[in-house]
């Protein structure tokens, strides 16, 4: 309980920095509750087909580089666990946080944070200050993950 409250507080604090950033940077604020982001980042439902394409796109999600996915792709990586069935293992909010900033779940994670711009070192100039995915792209990929039951 105490831990939950602490996380909620942390989430709010980060949410606030997010809000402050929203004026200058591209991030929308969000709230983390118990290892999950319960609310949509955009309010617009994600499109699973677009999400699937983004998950395969090297310059976007590129999830297939590290994860086996139930798709036809010549090469699939195995740095992370297979994504088939993730929707039965995790809630929507948990999967959203996993895409947004997996380091909040596991600080040693080798999975990139797809919606974060702070606390990074020596980011290539062409990407500096921009998250890997837009808020709507996060929702699209999430919608695709939710089809993987």
């Amino acid at each position: 309980m105490r831990l939950g409250a602490a996380k909620l507080f942390l989430g709010l604090a980060i949410g606030l920095t997010g809000a402050a950033l929203a004026q200058t940077g591209p991030l929308v604020p969000y709230r983390v509750v118990d290892d999950a982001i319960p609310e949509s980042l955009t309010g617009t439902p994600g499109d699973p087909d677009r999400g699937r394409a983004l998950a395969l796109d090297r310059s976007k999600g590129n999830c297939v580089t590290c994860h086996n996915m139930p798709v036809n792709a010549d090469f699939q990586g195995d740095l992370g666990p297979p994504l088939d069935g993730v929707a039965s293992r995790w809630t929507e909010g948990e999967l959203r946080l996993r895409i947004v900033d997996s380091k909040r779940i596991n600080p040693d994670s080798n999975m990139p944070s797809f919606y974060r711009v702070e606390g990074l070192t020596a980011v290539r100039r062409d990407w500096a200050g921009r998250p890997m995915l837009t808020a709507q792209e996060v929702e699209d990929i999430l919608a695709y993950l939710l089809t993987l039951r």
């Binding site: 380091k103 080798n110 990139p112 944070s113 990074l120 070192t121 020596a122 980011v123 290539r124 990407w127 890997m132």
Partner: peptide, 9 residues
């Protein structure tokens, strides 16, 4: 050992 880049690795 420094994590770097947008991928933070």
């Amino acid at each position: 050992n420094t994590r770097r880049g947008q991928l933070d690795m």
